[in-house]
Amino acid sequence: MMELSPEELTAVRLSLRIAVVATLASLPFGVLVAYALARWRFPGKVLLDGLVHLPLVLPPVVTGYVLLLLFGRRGPIGSVLAETFGIVFSFRWTGAALACAVMGFPLMVRAIRLSIEAIDQRLEAAAGTLGANRPWTFVLITLPLALPGLMVGSILCFAKALGEFGATITFVSAIPGETQTISAAIYGLTQTPAGDAGALRLTLVSVAIALGALVVSEAVQRLARRKLAQFE
């Protein structure tokens, strides 16, 4: 009864891979956007802020459909990527990772931005007077001090990516072995007459993964708090 079928195992593995790739690939962009929103003043800042947060407030299906329009094979971005770099998103697991990254991005940016805003800018000024230029200051001072935010943001993004359903299924459908994540598999199983046992097994797996992520997140936050307490 508790043995996962090969198809279910594939869905679990795929979900983990998609969530990990979505998180790691969006981290550099997340840091850049968070830093820009926290520290720079530029025209269109409000627009960028709104754009980043849009997936948080839009129905996921709408986000998925917009991704389909933009990154689909005939979409303005998708066609260029496919022709020049050979990168295809539509109906591929990479597309699922893109959808998950977009959905998790606002959570990631928020966490990192908060931690960058909490850094006393005079520390960066001090580094400047000691001879460190902007890039060195960023690497040696800003980034290490924002580390707790980076970790929390990554975990939030990972959790969001694991649970993502609406945008993914709209953008890349639910092709077993390619784009069918745990969520999509559970939904599929509940629609078939004999699917209850499978749905239950996958539900237990996703509860276990979610609990695991929570435990890791708690541990990381405790560690970060202890580090920060050391700084005070």
């Binding site: 006393d120 005079r122 520390l123 007077t129 001090l145 005070e232």
Partner: peptide
């Protein structure tokens, strides 16, 4: 040019 702040501003990490 070196600068000493009123509140030290040492790098906490």
């Amino acid at each position: 040019i070196g600068l000493v702040f009123q509140d030290a501003q040492l790098f906490p990490h």
